[in-house]
Amino acid sequence: MNPVVEVKNLNVTFKGEEGSIFAVNDVSFDLAAGETLALLGESGCGKSVTLKSLMRLHPMHKTQIEGQVLVEGQDVLKMKSKALSEMRGKTVSMVFQEPMLAFDPVFTVGDQIAESVMRHERISYKDARQRALEMLDRVRIPSAAKRLDAYPHEMSGGMRQRAMIALALACKPRVLLADEPTTALDATVQIQVLLLLKELQRELGMSMIFVTHDVGVAIEVADRTAVMYAGRIIEQGPVQAVLSKPWHPYTQGLLGATVHPGMDRNQALPAIPGAPPQLIRRIDECAFAPRCAQASSRCLSPLPSVNTLTPRWTRCIHADVSQA
């Protein structure tokens, strides 16, 4: 079956007054129908930038995007603005970390959902309101009919997040892009939203790309994961395999440094020394080498390209790929 999303050699560069930032370098991945991919990484690794490229949400004049982003076979990067706005919200939809930013504070939640449906499906206001009600019900907002006329600020954090999911899913998109949608939520609310997203995905048969920095969240929602570091995917594969037997030293380090239950409290945490590099130049060698205990001189010369079509791969040249 053809993948729903195919990203090929994506490069995103931000041009600024004080030089360029090479935010995403040579990122390739694909996504099958009904599948969830977690883009896992720390702040500044390029995971959110990659996600926004799928809808071309970057400011045009400051951003240089190269490569191919195919959604259902159509290249998003070459789309005319009309086709683009048709695609946004209908084929591909997005939920953000901060729901307050997704809603306009002066309109009711119901009207905003209805407006989106009317724009994409050209149906009457009455039918669109009906759909909005269905959606609020579906994301399990209690007394949905009443909440239809609520303003965003009248809702609690968790409920706003649900409402945003309702907005994103109102036109039954093929792909949902989720940018850390549960990071700002409290633990007991986060799990509600995660489980809800998983369930809705199954019901609607959507594909989902889930950006997160939380290993636990990735394990909970994703089928496959792509670990990003310094603007590149450094390891990709099934979530189970990658996060139980990581190949790349960075993934190993990240998992080791993440505090989890049952750790020996009398031992120091296995932290990764140093900090990620600044992306002020295009890094073709291994960007993790300066922090890596296994690094050799070979890591400091440009790395060979990897076959990204195999189910599991890593960019590390020292990785022992025999143990899967």
Partner: peptide, 18 residues
């Protein structure tokens, strides 16, 4: 910087960057 081991070249790299 901390208790984990670090190869000398990496350390030199980090300090140069600092």
């Amino acid at each position: 910087m901390n208790s984990t081991t670090q190869n000398p070249s990496a350390q030199a790299f980090a300090i140069a960057a600092e």
